[in-house]
Design a binder for these strands. Structure first.
Length: 852
RNA sequence: GGGCGGUUAGCUCAGCUGGUCAGAGCGCCUGCCUUACAAGCAGGAGGUCCCCGGUUCGAGCCCGGGACCGCCCACCA
């Protein structure tokens, strides 16, 4: 136990208590507790790629406040921390940071060491290509550094995580869990491989999933193009934004009920320039109002083409390759002039270049009707990508997600309904996402830094890879890297040989691993899973409901047939649309670490906790400043209270009515704050507590100050009340302001406040025995306010003596005032107090003459 | 095109199941060094609670319509 300091300060308080908490193992999870006593949190593993943004800190702080409340309430809080380091963001960061590029065909260099960072961030300047293994090693090196930095920030913010419970989505344990879950999905038929048209990013060279696609308004042009009818009876005009796909055209499609085109269904037309005969077909997805009401189907311009191609059983005439270029070779279905045109205008070009050339040719041939019309239209992009997605056919791994299985879809919707969402409206985002799923979850990525698929393929004696017949890794041999480990029964020398094997070269999408976070943390050490799963809480951001949250529900449903957690807490969005401008023009800093220096962790936490669940929030340094002010006020008020009570313990009886009134009010605050916190409404708990606290300082403390200092009969009552109130107020504030409250607690109590029990209103009520007439405090505070006001208006110091104070009021209020009369006179420096019964409140303050 | 949030003092926001709900902090103005706190205290100015209808004895709060802002989803002809 420390002394009450002469001068209070928040300087260095974060470092001091972080070290103390670590040393005292304050937040260490007690592995011995049964499931009912545990509150387990499925902490989001932040993406470790560079620096931590304020938006992340915002959500984690809110979660921490909830965790701290639950801990004080008696639950053993399971609060691990993970780092999401596998995947594309890390690869990209490594590429830019070191100026390197992964060349999967290059041989491994065993003597490789970390290169110096590239100049200028190395963006787009790959100065050096690396073997896959070397590249992966470099990813590990850089993420390890970033993770240290992240932990530092989390600690400075006061996150009460158990730092012995950490994982990374790329570490051995996570890879093993991820591979095991995949193998089980595969064995149960929930995962499968398929050769199919998939959405493809031509720059990253990988397939991407529906959840990672976004629409961007992009400039383009609408071209009206004429298709000659094969019977020579005129032409059909269509509109397209992608005329370069004409050589891939396989049909024209119109709505079955469209009278304009009905007579043509079944007949052929000739594609312009390329002169390929394609049929006119009918499909309900064709919209008569769009364009000319008839569209060209190409393999593939967009996902609708894929549907038409599949459902109308059209031929495959794909020409765009994985690098985004049209193939060099003239395809077999083009002949004569068409083949020539292809060679001149299309072959080997990117989509944009080919488009220009084809449009010129169309114009020359007279097949372009009018001029292209510029327009803005939505185009699909990979959310991390820079160029429009293409659709290419490739072999990929999928997990069934209900998109093509109504029963599974319904089951997942029911899971969503069974969950408690905070705030509730976030649940509809989940619902809409599940309802809108249109394809199974594509989990394979043609990348390097990720969890490999634990499968190999036999190669027959003719050198053909047997894709349909994968060799699965045994669960006890996980994690495995099929590109460096041979499958059971084979030797490494047989890799790539006839009669040998080939390892799967793909890695899993990051979400395929992070969706197993409950399983990963639950098996981070033995005998843990049944103590923490299903978990209590999933906190996360709103933008990853469709990815992380949905995928976690799916994996848990498939593996355990239950919800992974009972409650989902979705934090709001940080509104800082113009971050750069803000920091430049105002010279402000916006990284969490800088803000901690400026406002203290408690100040930053106060700002974050002012925002309710799901509430979008502006970065507001004024609020952080106010939080810091509150923390300092707490220190000062505590210093004062402990100064008069000597921290001797609330031994004496609380006899004065006004003291009892204050405690009765505080009991109501405890009730409200507890209820709010329990319902994840920490912002209300804070507002209620804070509001009480300021009134407490401004009115109650002023009223009882003199009495508490003195030796009179009421002194003991005041001191006991002060000490009781302080012990409760500190605990009410502890989840939001862990540093300031711990500091004060340490002045007079043993142990950490964060392991102290949450206050119970019942204890307070027992103490005041129901006799806490709140009117006494209210009337006293009101009269004192009037006295202060009079002095202020007269521009006199507040300690100015009041020669005569006349209070006229109704009987009840006068009676209440009489009870607190001594305190009011002391606090107001009142010489003579006259109470007079009257119909309404009227207060007259006569100040003593000025001294000069 | 569909959906979800939001619109309350100059700024950032509270206002829970309709009746002291017209509030807080910041900013602004005026005082006050009062032995916990000047990183403070006391006081003050400032709002047709987006608009239009409706329900009700009574509506920021409920219902209908509309406007604007943000976000999410949607098959890019």
């Amino acid at each position: 136990m420390a002394e009450v300091p002469d001068k209070v300060s928040l300087e260095g308080i974060e470092a001091k208590w972080d070290a103390a908490w670590e040393e005292q193992r304050t937040y260490r999870f007690d592995r011995g507790k049964p499931r009912e006593a545990v509150f387990s949190i499925d902490t989001p593993p932040p993406t470790v790629s560079g620096s931590l943004h304020l938006g992340s800190a915002f959500g984690y702080i809110q979660t921490d406040a909830i965790a701290r409340f639950q801990r004080m309430r008696g639950r053993e809080v399971f609060y691990p921390m993970g780092w999401d380091d596998n995947g594309l963001p890390t690869e990209r960061r490594v590429q830019n940071h070191y100026g390197v590029w992964c060349d999967p065909t290059a041989p491994y260099d065993p003597d490789f060491t970390e290169p110096p960072p590239a100049e200028g961030g190395g963006k787009d300047k790959a100065v050096r290509s690396l073997a896959r293994q070397n590249f992966v090693e470099l990813c590990h090196i850089l993420t390890a550094e970033d993770e240290k930095g992240f932990e530092r920030v989390w600690r400075d913010l006061g996150l009460s995580v158990d730092w012995t419970l950490t994982y990374a989505t790329i570490d051995d344990h996570s890879r093993a869990v991820s591979q095991r879950a995949f193998l089980r999905n595969l064995r149960r038929g929930q995962a499968y491989a398929a050769e199919a048209p998939t959405v493809w990013d031509v720059d990253f060279g990988t397939a991407v999933a529906q959840a990672e696609i976004e629409d961007r308004e992009t400039g383009g042009a609408m071209h009206r193009v004429a298709f000659q009818r094969a019977d020579g009876e005129g032409a059909i005009e269509i509109e397209t934004t992608r005329p370069e796909l004409l050589p891939s055209c396989v049909a024209l499609v119109a709505h079955p009920d469209d009278e304009r085109y009905r007579p043509l269904f079944g007949s052929d037309v000739l594609t312009p320039l390329f002169r390929v005969a394609v049929p006119v077909v009918a499909h309900p997805l064709a919209e008569p109002e769009k364009g000319t009401g008839i569209a060209m189907v190409c393999t593939f311009g967009d996902t609708t083409d894929v549907v038409w191609w599949r459902e109308l059983d059209l031929p495959l005439r794909a020409l765009i390759q994985r690098d985004g270029r049209f193939q060099d070779e003239v395809p077999g279905w083009l002949t004569g002039a068409g083949a020539e045109t292809y060679g001149e205008a299309v072959a080997g070009r990117h989509a944009k270049q080919a488009r220009r050339a084809v449009v010129e040719k169309l114009r020359d041939a007279g097949d372009l009707i009018g001029e292209p019309k510029q327009l803005m239209h939505p185009v699909k992009f990979f959310e991390k990508g820079d160029r429009p997605l293409e659709i290419v056919t490739s072999r990929q791994w999928y997990i069934r997600n209900g998109a093509r299985d109504p029963g599974l879809r319904r089951a997942l919707l029911e899971r969503g309904e069974a969950m408690d969402w905070h705030p509730p409206f976030m649940g509809v985002r989940f619902k809409h996402w599940v309802e809108g799923l249109n394809s199974d979850w594509l989990i394979s990525r043609q990348r390097f830094f990720g969890v490999p698929f634990p499968v190999w393929y036999p190669i027959d004696e003719h050198g053909r890879t047997q894709w349909e017949d994968p060799i699965l890794c045994a669960e006890d041999a996980l994690p495995v890297d099929p590109q460096s480990d041979p499958p059971p029964g084979y030797g490494e020398a047989q890799r790539g040989q006839p009669g040998g094997f080939a390892g799967d070269t793909d890695v899993m999408d990051t979400w395929a691993t992070s969706s197993l976070s409950p399983q990963i943390v639950g098996t981070i050490e033995p005998n843990l899973f049944e103590r923490v799963f299903p978990m209590d809480l999933r906190p996360q951001g709103p933008e990853i409901i469709r990815t992380w949250l949905f995928a976690t529900v799916l994996r848990s449903h498939l593996e355990h047939y239950e919800l992974p957690w009972s409650d989902a807490f979705i934090n709001g969005w940080i509104l800082d649309p113009d971050r750069k401008k803000m920091s430049k023009s105002k010279g402000n800093v916006t990284t969490p670490a800088d803000l901690v220096v400026q406002y203290g962790a408690d100040g930053l936490r106060y700002w974050a906790c002012k925002a309710g669940p799901g509430a979008d929030t502006a970065v507001d340094q004024a609020q952080m400043k106010n939080g810091r002010r509150l923390a300092i006020k707490l220190l000062n008020a505590s210093k004062f209270m402990l100064g008069v009570t000597s921290g001797a313990g609330a031994a004496g009886a609380i006899t004065e009515t006004i003291d009892r009134a204050m405690l009765a009010e505080l009991a109501a605050v405890v009730d409200d704050a507890t209820e709010a916190f329990a319902g994840y409404e920490y912002h209300r708990a804070l507002a209620r507590t804070e509001s009480f606290f300021w009134h407490f300082c401004d009115h109650y403390l002023e009223l009882v100050k003199s009495r508490a200092y003195g030796e009179g009969p009421g002194a003991e009552s005041a001191r006991a009340a002060l000490e009781t109130a302080l012990a409760i107020l500190l605990r009410l504030f502890a989840p939001v302001l862990p540093f300031a409250t711990e500091e004060v607690w340490s002045w007079w109590r043993e142990g950490s406040i964060h392991r102290a029990p949450w206050p119970a209103a019942e204890e307070l009520r027992d103490m005041v025995a129901g006799d806490g007439d709140v009117e006494v405090l209210a009337v006293a505070a009101d009269v004192l306010s009037e006295v202060h006001k009079a002095k202020t208006l007269e521009r006199r110091p507040l300690r100015t003596q009041v020669a005569r104070l006349v209070v006229e009021d109704v009987g009840d209020r006068l009676a209440a005032l009489r009870i607190a009369e001594a305190d009011v006179r002391e606090a107001g420096v009142v010489e003579e107090l006259v109470l007079r019964e009257g119909p309404e409140r009227q207060i007259t303050v006569e100040l003593a003459a000025a001294a000069d």
